[in-house]
Structures are given as C-alpha cells and as structure tokens.
Amino acid sequence: MTLSRRLFMGAAGATALATPALAQRGTWPDRPIRLVLGFATGGVGDLTARLIAPKIAEGLGQPIVIDNRPSAGGIVSAESVARSAPDGNTMLLLTTTNSTASAIYKSLPYDVVRDFAPIARIATFDHVLLTAANSPYKTLQDVLDAARAKPGSINIGSISVGNAQHLGAELLRSMTGADLTVVPYRSTPDLINATATGDVQIASEILAPALSQLDGGRLRALAMTSAERFPSMPNVPTATESAVPNYIVGSWNGMAAPIGTPRPIIERMNKEIVRAMAQPDIRAKLLELGVQPATSTPEEFGTFIRAEGERWAKIVQDAGIPKQ
C-alpha cells in the first residue's frame, strides 16, 4: 500500500541504547539500542516498529536500530536476545509468534516466560474472516450452515502452519464443530488470491494486509475475530456477535529485554513507549494500517504473555495439531 510504503521510508532511520553499570549510575542510555525483530522488512509489524521507534528515541535521547532477523517461529531473533547481555542495549519485539512457537515446537532454545523481562505491549493486530466479493455467503453463519449441510464443501484458508492465522482457523473448526477443511498457503498474497477466486470459501487473516483488497472490492469481510468491532469498519460484526460466542483471535506485539535487565531501564523504556503510543499522529497512522494501539505496565504484559502461552497451547491440543 502507498501508506505503508510512505511510513516505511519515513521511519526507516530508527535506532537506540545502554550498559548495566552505567544504567545503575543513572546514565543509561549512552549509545544506540538494538531492537530485534523476528521477521523481514515491509510487513505490518515491521512498519509498526519503525513508526514508533523514532518517537521512543526522542524521549531516550538515543536512536533505536531495527535489526530484522526473520526465521520460522521467530526463533532466531528471540534466541539472540535471550543470550544478550541484560544491559538495556538489546531488546526484542515480542509477538504472538513467540507464544504460538512455544505451543507448536517440542523444544526451543529459550523460554518465552523465564528468559525475557516484559516491558510493555505496543499494539494488537485484529484478524478478520474474509470471503470473495461475489461469494454467496453474506454472513459467517451462512458459511457454517453450508459446512454443516454439506460436509467437506467449505475450505478455510490461512498462512503458515502454526501461526495465529492458522491456529485461528483451526480454533474456528474445533469450536463450531463444522466440517471445515483448513488449507494453509505460503504467503498472504497467495491466500488473498485464492479467496478472491473462490479456491477457498473463507480465509483467516490479519486485517492489515487485507485492507486494500477490501477497499478495492475484491474481498468482503464476514466478521472480525476481535472482542470489539474495528473502529474504521463499524458495519462488520465480530464473530462473537454474529455466529460463534467467545471466538476471539488476534495478534499482538510488545517489547521485552533479556531477563536480568535492571528495573530502572525497564521502567524508563515502559514510560517512553506509553508516551509514544499516546501521540495522536502515531495512533492515527496505526489505525490506518489496521493496527490497534495498546500499552501496559511491565507486570500486565508479563501476565498477558503467560496467559497467551497457555491459551495457544490449549488451542493446539484441542485442535490435534502435531508438535514440530
């Protein structure tokens, strides 16, 4: 999207901070901070990080350097931060993928709860259930009724086995008891094209990358999978409202540091994140990208991370998804 490209270019200079002994003497940060991301440049999570990093850096007086380290399950990025010195110089953009990886993989080289010090949530990424613009299904209930009337007739597409979109599709199948066939695709463009052409009757995807197709009239939103309707799409009901009570699936991100990072650094970083996320221009740009701003205390974020790990582990178990 043009907006995404503009935000990416405008925020690409982001960089940042720290050192433990200095932090305890109150002189942190004294140099740039490295913020490690577990995915490539250009996606909505990357754009979000690059959008807010300069605002956080303004308050810290040091730049924040974005370090993209894409890998399956975000394992490479998380491991690199978990093994970094707890001096405030290296931080991780923790995401839903870290929670789903803990649920999907038999073993990981880190523990998402024990090896990281939570700082703050940053944003949530609402998911949406999509169908083709010319689809005969006008509501989510129509799709479920068709699946029950003719078992095996409805395919639900997602991307990347094990991520939140895929597990959301599996959760819909298990919660409704409908005979839905989950079909994973390699990428979002592949999934969107398959949905628009009717290869799959419904898709589970993050809202942000689907917005241009919704605006262009190629796709139609059946339901949001968030707890509340998305602000700029008030006419699209939630799945809970329309057909599946308590079906809530979404993605999120936030910032964390290696365990043992001094508490003053955690508190200072939390303060600057909260300040940045309160900026009206930041909030407006995030909403344009299909992203909901969100903040928390370190303790609230820690509780949330633990709850997410337990929730995704139960989804994987209930859906009978084999661990890798």
Rank of each mutant, 00 (worst) to 15 (best):
D281M: 07
L129I: 15
I321Q: 12
W28Q: 03
A223D: 03
V65N: 14
V143C: 03
A49D: 01
A203P: 09
G216N: 14
L172I: 07
L222W: 06
M91V: 14
G157K: 06
S296N: 06
E299P: 03
V65P: 00
S80E: 15
L130C: 09
A23N: 02
D318W: 01
V36R: 09
I192C: 00
A169R: 10
S226H: 12
K323G: 00
A72W: 01
P86S: 04
S242A: 13
M9W: 05
L286T: 09
G10Y: 07
P86C: 04
S232P: 01
L144A: 03
L207F: 13
R69V: 11
R50I: 06
R173T: 12
P258L: 15
A149E: 13
A12W: 08
T139L: 04
E272Q: 14
A103E: 08
Q165T: 14
T295Y: 10
V236L: 03
D199Q: 14
A276P: 10
T2D: 13
G152E: 11
T131Y: 02
P118A: 06
S153Y: 04
Q324L: 11
T95P: 02
R275V: 11
R263V: 11
I202G: 00
T297I: 02
D67H: 14
D318A: 13
A243W: 07
P264K: 04
L51Y: 05
F8P: 00
A278L: 06
R283H: 08
E310S: 13
P237E: 05
A78E: 10
G42K: 10
G320Q: 09
R50D: 04
A313W: 00
S174T: 14
T124Q: 15
A85K: 12
D215S: 11
G157P: 09
L219D: 09
L222G: 05
A82N: 08
D46R: 01
M9N: 08
A72C: 00
I119S: 12
S84L: 12
E308F: 02
G168I: 11
E58R: 11
D115N: 11
D111Q: 10
R6N: 07
W312G: 03
Q279D: 15
A117I: 01
R114W: 06
V143K: 04
S107R: 15
R263Y: 01
D126Y: 10
N270Y: 05
A11D: 07
S158F: 02
E267W: 00
G73K: 12
L211V: 08
P262G: 02
A294V: 10
I282N: 10
V200N: 06
P231K: 07
G177F: 01
D142L: 04
Y137L: 01
G198S: 10
A12Y: 06
Q62K: 12
F125Q: 12
G74L: 11
I159H: 05
Y247R: 01
P245F: 01
